[in-house]
């Protein structure tokens, strides 16, 4: 029985061993690859526009990743590489648009809307507070009767 169990256990482990072999590192230099991925995540794939080039398998994205890898190997800084891409593909290639004149509305518009909404709410509440509420004696008596629990329809 014990033998059978250990055999079964060994069989269970088999797929793990197979998987471990498949997950061999893709690049010869993992540190470099990590930097490539970090930059690639900041760059938009222009073919499939809602993906960055790290995620994309479009041919252009693969070419651009190779370009980034080569530039890193040449010892260029992250900023130099990003500038290289922007000078060719424009700001659009940046996944996070830069803060500048033409993008102010994009960056700050939501906050302006929020402030406007809060202001509107505040004014409405202020106006409502100012209104005097008058209750007639009959209404007050009815309310008290209701609260006491001995309300009877008066007819």
């Amino acid at each position: 029985m014990r033998k059978l169990m250990s055999l079964l256990f060994a069989l269970l482990l088999l797929p793990q061993i197979a998987l471990a072999r498949e997950a061999a590192p893709v690049a010869e230099d993992p540190a470099l690859e990590a930097r490539v991925t970090k930059i690639a995540e900041e760059l938009r794939c222009l073919v499939c526009q809602n993906q960055n080039i790290a995620d994309s398998h479009a041919e252009l994205a693969i070419d651009l990743k190779n370009q980034v890898r080569e530039m890193l190997k040449k010892g260029m800084s992250d900023k130099e590489i990003i500038d290289f891409m922007v000078s060719r593909y424009g700001d659009f290639v940046l996944y996070r648009p830069p803060v500048k004149g033409t993008t102010w509305l994009l960056w700050f518009g939501p906050f302006v809307l929020l402030a406007g909404g809060l202001g509107f709410l505040f004014m409405r509440l202020r106006r409502r507070q100012g209104q005097e509420v008058t209750i007639s004696d009959a209404d007050r008596a009815t309310a008290e009767a209701l609260l006491d629990g001995n309300y009877k329809e008066q007819q």
Partner: peptide, 15 residues
Amino acid sequence: NPREVPSPLIGKPAP
């Protein structure tokens, strides 16, 4: 057309 990305190269020397 979101596919048409304005090129930053216009007005610049041809690479």
